[in-house]
């Protein structure tokens, strides 16, 4: 910058407005500094991670059809801690490994239903392929939770982490499977 005399440097007016602007910005930053971390606190919290007893034993899980189980998970929601009801469908895959599927539809989150008889006992799929049906938009999945690509859900049912402790099946965090 140059003033009227062609000298280099800041004009008085510029210097003052920078000084004033700088001070103002500093004051605003001091006020904002604690407020922003306060608001984004939820980002610093991890969800659960612990395992909960499903109430099923290893021998309860079949390899022909999934078995449904309701169990409780301890959840911390702000200052409220409670045991919330969760549901899982468990089956042994071809290699005999236990997989525990979440019944939450991977389209928009409705609860899918398994193919069961009047007493709630699993029975063969009516069409020989699709075993879980979503009531909302016709999503459907095989006994292993693999989705019908022609329907809205575009990824298989999510899986619980499974751990077997002394024959008891413990279920942990839910994770997604690749489409």
């Amino acid at each position: 910058m140059s003033d009227k005399n062609g000298k280099q440097g800041l004009s008085r007016r510029q210097f003052l407005s920078y000084a004033l602007g700088g001070t103002g910005a500093f004051m605003a930053a001091t006020i904002a500094a604690p407020l922003v971390p306060f608001a984004i606190d939820p980002l610093t919290r991890t969800s659960g991670g612990g395992f909960a007893d499903s109430g099923l034993k290893e021998s309860d899980v079949k390899s022909d059809f999934p078995t449904m189980v309701d169990f409780k998970v301890h959840r911390k929601d702000g200052w409220i801690e409670e045991n919330v009801k969760m549901r899982a469908w468990l089956i042994k895959d071809e290699s005999g490994k236990i997989m525990a599927m979440s019944p939450i539809c991977t389209h928009l989150g409705c609860q899918v239903a398994g193919t069961v008889d009047g007493n709630g006992n699993p029975k063969p799929s009516e069409d020989g392929e699709w075993w879980f049906h979503c009531p909302c938009h016709g999503g459907r999945y095989t006994i292993y939770g693999i989705n019908d690509k022609a329907k809205p859900p575009q990824r298989p049912l999510d899986l619980y982490e499974v751990k077997v402790e002394g024959g008891k099946i413990m279920l942990g965090a839910i994770s997604q499977r690749k489409a």
């Binding site: 604690p34 407020l35 971390p37 606190d41 610093t44 702000g78 200052w79």
Partner: peptide, 15 residues
């Protein structure tokens, strides 16, 4: 909720 703000929220005591 106030206790939660003071003891748990990030910089809650400051705010």
């Amino acid at each position: 909720s106030v206790q939660y703000i003071t003891d748990e929220v990030l910089l809650g005591q400051i705010v």
